[in-house]
Design a protein around this nucleic acid. Structure first.
Length: 225
DNA sequence: GCCCAGGTGGGTA
DNA sequence: TACCCACATGGG
């Protein structure tokens, strides 16, 4: 960090550095809010390539719709989800989500997500299987709410550089970013995607590639964290 | 064989 | 609060 710079500049500087390196990533472009929400649940502790296989299967069967999936049996739903792993658990989570969406909001996700951000977050968090990261992914990517999504990459990168404590609570990290970024969904969307990319390619759990990392401008990371 | 992946929930102390 | 563990698939 150069002299005169404060930690308030860090998220913006990271965003600029990563955008310059990776170019715009445009996560979840052109997909329906429902597809995005379903993907957000299926990707829990799972690589995105596995989620795409499950989503493609659901799409090919013409079932990528809240009412259609809601009408399936538990076993049928679990089989569709199987490629994304932890499928019996996730089938239960998806079932809970569908029951909320169809039962309380007539299957209309944009309508279900409209309104006050904090209230909608609470509503999503009340559903079993929708934790903080999944709730915020749905709020941001499917609902266009200006929230920052904190994931394992965010924790690893920013704790290695000393900006957040390793075991800091989710909402502490989220507000640290939100306080330092514009309340613009497109910025928060892009930054989260960029962080995942740099986390995969450079700031890896093992064998990190710090020498060529686009975030080496932040200084020397503490890899013990 | 092992760790990891765009986590969450339940249990225990 | 802070750890542990199960969940389950496939890639590196």
């Amino acid at each position: 960090m150069s002299p005169g710079r404060t930690d308030r500049d860090i998220p913006g500087a990271v965003h600029a550095a990563l955008l310059s390196h990776f170019g715009p990533l445009h996560w979840w472009p052109g997909e329906s809010p429902f597809e995005i929400a379903l993907g957000a649940i299926l990707t829990q502790n799972t690589s995105w390539s596995r989620v795409e296989i499950a989503m493609d299967g659901i799409r090919e069967k013409g079932l990528l719709d809240a009412h259609a999936l809601h009408a399936l049996s538990d076993d049928e739903l679990a089989e569709l989800i199987r490629p994304s792993g932890t499928f019996r658990i996730k089938a239960g989570y998806v079932r809970t989500f569908l029951s909320w969406l169809v039962g309380s909001h007539e299957g209309d996700l944009p309508a279900a997500l409209a309104g006050d951000t904090a209230k909608k977050r609470e509503e999503l968090l009340a559903l079993r299987g929708i934790g903080r990261e999944t709730a915020d992914s749905i709020l941001l990517y499917a609902g266009g709410h200006p929230v920052f999504v904190v994931d394992a990459y965010t924790r690893r990168i920013f704790s290695r550089h000393g900006f957040v404590a390793r075991g800091a609570p989710y909402d502490h990290i989220r507000t640290w970013f939100e306080d330092r970024l514009p309340a613009a969904p497109e910025v928060l969307n892009e930054l989260h995607a960029q962080i995942v990319s740099v986390g995969k390619d450079f700031c890896r759990p093992r064998n990190p590639r710090c020498e060529t990392c686009p975030l080496r401008v932040l200084g020397e990371p503490d890899l013990r964290r």
